[in-house]
Amino acid sequence: MNLHAIRAIYLFEMARTWRTLLQSIVSPVISTSLYFVVFGAAIGSRITEIDGISYGAFIVPGLIMLSLLTQSIANASFGIYFPKFTGTIYELLSAPISFVEIVVSYVGAAATKSIILGLIILATAALFVPLRIAHPVWMLVFLVLTSVTFSLFGFIIGIWADGFEKLQIVPLLVITPLTFLGGSFYSINMLPPFWQTVTLFNPVVYLVSDFRWSFYDQADVPIGVSVAMTLVFLTACIAIVAWMFRTGYKLKS
């Protein structure tokens, strides 16, 4: 195991976060605060409690999940795409480092950033609404699991993308709509039966549901199913990354 290489890449990626603090941390926190103002205060004041939870508090897990997904993908995809774009990828490919080590270091750094961001948003939310966390350990487990899974997904997008447009397509056209329609701002039980069934095909529903369960002990779908679905997606991402490195897809000719 080339631990020095893992450390070097991890610290390099984390250094990028501190260097771009404004866009990495501050801007997602401001965006989330705006959601609280708009949905929590302005609209939320006209919505009654959902499942016994005030609307402002109800949307906290969904909002954290929204940032977690978009930032995990953005961090990881940019982390591996940028060396491809600048050409410095040659150094990574010629170094004595395995694909597992490359993935661990890039995805580890991207997930770390997302976890930090998730915790900052959680602290910010506590300023706006009264929070309680019923299962803090599970909350952290879901935070880590989701960050790692979507950082892996972002890593795949970063390898696949051959332009900045492609880098943006999946987060903008797929992830954001799925998150908005995944029960971040409402309980899927509020939907008509037909749309409830349709929603179950949205993987983000399971992520939001299990994360909300860790806060309020209430879930839209059974918690075991949610965890299983997340693990299935994680396994699929690992398999795709392994295939990409084995075949050199868009990395080696």
Partner: peptide, 8 residues
Amino acid sequence: SFSRGLFG
């Protein structure tokens, strides 16, 4: 320094 670490 990064390159040195990368090469183990």
